[in-house]
Amino acid sequence: MIDDKVLNSILYMSKLKVSGEEKENFRKQIEEILSYFKVLTSVDTENVESAAGEGVSIEDLRVDEIKDSFPLAIIKTFAADFQDGYFPVPRILGDGSGGEYK
């Protein structure tokens, strides 16, 4: 049901690795869960909306007024790494508009 191609592509999206011996167990568990989801197919959803709930009017949204941001000292209290005011990451190229993971 879940072939290697699908498994690997979803793991890639998830940014997770499942190593060799765990892989089969992982696949089995996922397949079991997915097949349980079939219970939904018995429900007729023809022309049913997937309503996102009630809407909110513009007046109830946030007024465009500036509030204080974090002082740099606060960022240092929770940052995993903070160098000269920046969050460092392994060198990357491009603007990151998706998918450039070479």
Partner: peptide, 19 residues
Amino acid sequence: GVRYGLRDITGNNLEDLYV
């Protein structure tokens, strides 16, 4: 692993940091 919490930088690129 970029901003807070666990951060494994033993790899050599961004994908490694994430995964």
